[in-house]
Design a protein around this nucleic acid. Structure first.
Length: 346
DNA sequence: AACTAGGACAACCGCATGGGC
DNA sequence: GGCCCATGCGGTTGTCCTAGT
């Protein structure tokens, strides 16, 4: 049986479209409008399959298509939507005016997906790659001395990996909130301000939840935090809430700053070159599962006290390459020695 | 300058879906 | 309800371009 072809393909042209063909198609649609794709080629004089005409029109010739490089905001939107919708490119495209599903799909596969992989994020689940996370236990294993062999200890902080593993693996357990709360109590993470499409709705809430010890009054225009979904924030009390539908890496990667600590405090460099030195409040939690102080040692590989990309400046729309590059990896940078095959971890 | 590998993106293919008859 | 057709969708392939050697 099998489905009959959409048109008789014998003698029909395939491959890249010529300017002449584009002109024919555009002029025909300008007069008759899109649709009736099966009969369009015959009526317009094109030796193309109707399906091919439709694709050419919808993906390339349509006048409302926005061409050119994706903006930082568009990229954020794609990542966010993909974490919720998966490979529903048309659904994602419907929320990005001027962008086609094909364009978004290509951009995902050629840019975003690779960047996520590079930064240890599974592009399908949007969670940290647990196989990478297992490096933590491997590195801590007394019977396994690869870290010494490769001098990798200076590149990967096992405890940070352990934290990520915990957050990822306990996303459906009650411990999850405990761990987040613990980090918040110790000012080791700060809820971040959304700079996102629906951010305005939750901006105030998140701002309110910034620890009082943080000298935010010095920087009226800058609030800290990133919360990619209002589901993460209880609008009534500003508390971070657990939502199992949100991939846990978002909580880690995009919802919290994991500052680099040095001498029990961290410094941060803002875009206006002013610096922050929030006080480090007392750690009153005696039930630490982690050695929190040592979780954020002197920056592992970054020369600056705190990678400036870890600060998300409210309202900032700057899109430097560094910012883009760091978007998916503000907190977890798995720097793998060149001598180590990245594919070995996959 | 020539060649090659990899990236980027346009286009294709097969299947799914929905509406009309 | 079943069939056919038009269209939509997502995965894959093909082609062009560019950087590196």
């Amino acid at each position: 049986m099998g489905r009959s072809p959409c048109c008789d393909k014998s003698g029909l042209k395939k491959g890249p479209w010529t300017q002449e063909e584009d002109l024919k198609l555009t002029q025909y649609i300008r007069i008759h409008g899109p649709g009736n794709w099966r009969t369009l080629p015959k009526n317009s004089g094109l030796e193309r399959c109707g399906k091919s005409c439709r694709l050419r029109w919808t993906n390339y010739l349509r006048p409302d298509i926005k061409r050119g490089r994706f903006s930082f905001e568009e990229e954020e939107t794609i990542i966010q939507l993909h974490s919720v919708l998966g490979n529903k490119w048309s659904a994602i495209a419907s929320r990005l005016p001027g962008r086609t599903d094909n364009e978004i799909k290509n951009y995902w596969n050629t840019h975003i997906r690779k960047r996520l992989l590079k930064n240890g994020i599974d592009p399908v689940t949007h969670r940290p790659r647990l196989d990478l996370m297992n490096l933590s236990s491997i590195l801590n294993s007394a019977s396994f001395n690869l870290s010494n062999l490769l001098n990798i200890q200076n590149l990967v902080n096992p405890q940070l990996l352990g934290l990520a593993t915990l957050l990822a693996s306990t996303s459906s357990s009650s411990n999850y909130q405990d761990n987040i709360d613990q980090l918040l109590r110790n000012n080791l993470v700060y809820p971040m301000n959304p700079n996102f499409n629906d951010g305005a709705q939750i901006q105030n809430v998140v701002t309110d939840s910034i620890p009082s010890s943080f000298p935010s009054n010095q920087h009226q225009n800058q609030t800290f935090g990133q919360c990619l979904s209002e589901n993460l924030v209880d609008k009534n009390n500003g508390q971070i809430t657990q939502d199992n539908s949100i991939p846990s890496y978002l909580l880690i990667d995009d919802s919290f700053i994991l500052p680099n600590y040095s001498d029990d405090q961290f410094t941060a460099q803002a875009s206006d070159n002013s610096s922050f030195q929030p006080s480090n409040t007392e750690n009153n939690n005696n039930n630490n599962n982690f050695d929190l102080d040592s979780m954020f040692p002197t920056p592992i590989s970054s020369p600056s006290p705190l990678d400036s990309s870890s600060i998300f400046i409210n309202g900032s729309t700057t899109t430097t390459e560094d910012e883009k590059e760091s978007y998916c990896s503000r907190n977890f940078k798995f720097e793998i020695p060149e001598s180590l095959e990245f594919d070995d971890f996959m």
